[in-house]
Structure formats: C-alpha cells, structure tokens
Amino acid sequence: DLSALRVEEVQNVINAMQKILECPICLELIKEPVSTKCDHIFCKFCMLKLLNQKKGPSQCPLCKNDITKRSLQESTRFSQLVEELLKIICAFQLDTGLEYANSYNFAKKENNSPEHLKDEVSIIQSMGYRNRAKRLLQSEPENPSLQETSLSVQLSNLGTVRTLRTKQRIQPQRTSVYIELGSDSSEDTVNKATYCSVGDQELLQITPQGTRDEISLDSAKKAACEFSETDVTNTEHHQPSNNDLNTTEKRAAERHPEKYQGSSVSNLHVEPCGTNTHASSLQHENSSLLLTKDRMNVEKAEF
C-alpha cells in the first residue's frame, strides 16, 4: 500500500496539472479547448457565450486583445492532455480508494470495455495498479461463464418462442383441414349439385314461356288486323247491294208514291245487322237523297 506522504505528493502534482488545464472563465477543466490569436485557451462554450454578448469583436479576458469567431481554432494537443489527466485522476481514485477533492464528473469518461483496460497499462506502473489488474484478471474467467449461461438462457427462450410460433402455425392448418373434411358430406355435395341443376332447368323453362307469350301476342295482333281488313271488305261488298236497293226503291216510288213515303220513313230507323257505323252513315245519306228525289217527283206529278 501507498504511504500517506506519497499520496499527498501525487495529489499535489495532480492539482498543479489541473490548474494549468483549467479554463480562466469557468475555472474547470477545459472541455473542447479553443485557442485565440494571443495563444490563450478557453472552453469553446465559454468563448461563444462571451462573443454573443456583444456585437462585433470582444476582448480576451487575459490580455484584452480583440477576439472574433473566425480567429478561434481548435487545439487537439490540449484536448489530449486533458484526457490523460482524467485517466490519471481515475487511476488515483481506484488505487487509494479516496475521492479526489477537486474531482469532476468523471463517470462519463469511464469505460469498462476490454480495449480501455489494455490502455490503462500505459498509465502508471504502481503496486495498487498491479493489484487491481490481478483482481480484474481473476474476475475475467467468471465473466465468460456468466456470458455462457446468459447465452444458453437466451437460446432456450428463443427455442420456446420458436416452438410456440410453430404450434400457432400448425393449429390453424389443422382446424382448416378439419373444417374441410367435416363441413360438407358427400350427400350434401350431391344435393347441392341437384339443386343447381334444377335451378338451371327452371331458368331454361322460364325463358321459352316468355317467348311463347310474345308469339301469342303477335298472333293476336295479326288476327285483329285481319279482322279489321275483313270488316272493310264487308262494308265494300254491302255498298253495291245498297245501291241495288236504292234503284228498286226509286222504281217503286215512281209507281206508288204514297205507299213509299211511309216505308221510307220506317227504313230510316232500321239498321242492317253486321255493318259498322260507317255503313250506317252512308245509308242515312242515301235515304235522305231518296226522300228529296221522291218529293221532286211528287211535285212534278201535281203540276
């Protein structure tokens, strides 16, 4: 173990290094160091905050020279020094078990990766560091076993998940096959086929009936047209017969005018059967003409 005197000496050296690497504005270890034209180094955030307070150039807090945003430059070497100082402080805390008085939040800088452990060898070769390295080497064999167990647990979990997924996939297939086998029997399929065939026959029977009705309507229309044509021909046949009657009536009127007047009046009210309204109107006109002729003949006879 380190003596108290040596611990104090190391602590004083760390404090001196820390004062050199402090920012003059925030009085902390410089984060993202930036250098000016006057070779003074500050935190990048502190300098941008200072420049944004005034429009135009501002003055350096140490030498009062003008500073602009374009004049600022990043210093990589200074950032490396800060990183190495942080590593020294971490090693000091691990070796002594004491917390550094002016320690900052170094938890963000710590890294437990194997590459980081290899890099620590180049920091300080001390008894405390050696003991700590031995402890780490002793704890390393235990870690692979834990990793193997965790991997086995994960693989077993994956296997159970896969088996569950396969079961879920197989179950719908089985149910679907069961439904297909038990849903419709052979008799049901035959009945469905016969039902479809009967429906098709009914459709075939319905369509000819409609065509037959249309044919019957067409035949009825044709018969009505033929009947009207026969009526017209009958009226045409009746007209010459009426003319013959008129000639006979004229002759009778010349011989017996008194008797014919009474008979002509009675004939006005008689309509021949089986004739249309057109034929009756023609008869009325003929009878009126005959009456006028008879009157003329009677007057001539009187004179």
Rank of each mutant, 00 (worst) to 15 (best):
D1A: 03
L2G: 03
L2R: 14
S3R: 07
L5I: 09
R6S: 05
R6N: 07
V7D: 01
E8G: 13
E8Q: 14
E9S: 03
E9D: 04
V10Y: 03
Q11D: 03
Q11R: 14
N15T: 08
A16M: 00
A16C: 04
M17S: 00
K19N: 03
K19R: 06
L21Q: 00
L21I: 04
E22N: 03
E22V: 02
C23S: 01
C23V: 00
P24V: 00
I25D: 01
I25A: 01
C26E: 00
L27D: 02
L27S: 02
L27R: 03
E28D: 09
L29W: 08
K31W: 02
K31Y: 07
E32P: 00
E32R: 02
P33C: 13
P33G: 08
S35W: 05
S35C: 05
S35G: 04
T36S: 04
K37Y: 08
K37T: 11
K37Q: 09
C38S: 00
D39R: 09
D39Q: 10
H40P: 00
H40R: 00
I41A: 03
I41G: 03
I41F: 08
F45Y: 09
C46Y: 01
C46N: 01
L48T: 06
L48I: 10
K49W: 01
K49P: 01
K49I: 04
L50V: 12
L51I: 08
N52T: 01
N52R: 03
N52E: 13
N52Q: 11
N52K: 06
Q53S: 07
K54R: 10
K54W: 01
K54E: 06
K54S: 09
K55E: 09
K55L: 05
G56C: 08
P57S: 11
Q59K: 03
Q59E: 00
Q59I: 08
L62P: 00
K64L: 00
K64P: 02
K64N: 02
N65S: 08
N65K: 10
D66A: 08
D66R: 03
T68H: 07
K69C: 05
K69L: 10
R70W: 07
R70Y: 15
L72D: 06
Q73L: 08
E74K: 02
T76G: 10
R77M: 14
R77V: 15
F78L: 15
S79L: 03
V82F: 02
V82H: 01
E83V: 05
E83A: 11
E83R: 06
E84T: 04
L86I: 09
L86M: 09
A91I: 02
Q93N: 07
Q93S: 04
D95L: 00
G97C: 01
L98T: 12
E99C: 07
E99S: 11
Y100S: 07
S103M: 15
Y104H: 13
N105G: 04
F106G: 06
F106E: 01
F106D: 04
F106S: 10
K108W: 03
K108S: 11
K109R: 12
E110N: 13
P114A: 11
P114F: 12
P114H: 04
K118S: 02
V121F: 00
I123N: 13
I123D: 03
I124H: 04
S126L: 11
M127E: 10
M127S: 01
G128Y: 02
Y129I: 09
N131L: 05
N131V: 10
N131T: 13
N131R: 14
R132Q: 11
R132L: 06
A133K: 10
A133P: 12
K134F: 02
R135T: 13
L136H: 15
L137P: 13
L137M: 14
Q138E: 09
Q138M: 08
Q138I: 04
S139I: 08
S139V: 12
S139A: 13
S139T: 11
E140L: 13
E140D: 11
P141V: 10
P141F: 12
P141K: 14
E142C: 10
E142K: 10
N143T: 12
N143M: 14
P144L: 10
P144D: 14
P144R: 11
S145W: 13
S145H: 11
L146Y: 10
Q147S: 10
Q147Y: 10
Q147T: 08
Q147C: 05
E148R: 12
T149S: 10
T149F: 01
T149D: 08
S150D: 06
S150C: 09
L151G: 15
L151R: 13
L151S: 13
S152K: 10
S152A: 13
S152E: 09
S152P: 02
V153P: 14
V153R: 09
S156H: 08
L158M: 04
L158A: 09
G159L: 02
T160V: 05
T160E: 14
V161M: 13
R162Q: 02
R162L: 00
L164T: 12
R165T: 03
R165L: 04
R165Y: 13
R165I: 10
R165F: 10
T166N: 07
T166W: 00
K167Y: 04
K167N: 11
K167R: 07
R174V: 07
R174F: 09
S186N: 15
S186C: 15
D188R: 04
K192G: 05
K192L: 01
S197D: 09
V198G: 14
V198H: 13
V198C: 05
D200H: 04
D200N: 12
D200S: 09
L203D: 09
L203I: 02
L204Q: 15
L204V: 13
Q205G: 13
I206Y: 06
P208M: 07
P208S: 07
Q209F: 09
G210I: 11
G210V: 09
T211L: 05
R212D: 06
E214D: 12
I215D: 12
I215L: 05
I215F: 12
S216D: 10
S216R: 07
S216F: 04
L217C: 07
D218P: 13
D218Y: 05
S219R: 14
S219T: 10
A220T: 09
A220E: 05
K221E: 08
K222G: 15
K222D: 14
K222W: 07
A223F: 06
A223S: 05
C225Q: 11
C225R: 06
S228G: 03
E229D: 10
E229S: 14
E229C: 06
E229L: 14
T230K: 15
D231S: 09
T233I: 14
T233Y: 15
P240L: 13
S241R: 10
N242S: 02
N242V: 09
N243R: 09
N243L: 05
L245A: 14
L245I: 11
N246S: 13
N246K: 04
E249N: 09
K250L: 09
R251Q: 05
A252V: 06
P257W: 11
E258H: 10
E258W: 07
E258K: 12
K259L: 07
K259A: 06
Y260W: 05
Q261F: 13
S263R: 02
S263H: 10
S264G: 11
S264L: 07
V265A: 13
S266I: 11
S266L: 10
S266G: 14
S266M: 06
S266C: 10
V270E: 08
V270F: 12
V270G: 02
E271F: 04
E271R: 10
P272N: 14
P272Q: 05
C273V: 09
C273S: 06
G274M: 08
T277S: 05
T277Q: 06
T277R: 07
H278S: 09
A279T: 11
S280L: 14
S280N: 12
S281G: 04
H284Q: 03
S287N: 09
S287L: 11
L291F: 10
K293S: 10
E299G: 03
A301G: 15
F303V: 15
F303S: 14
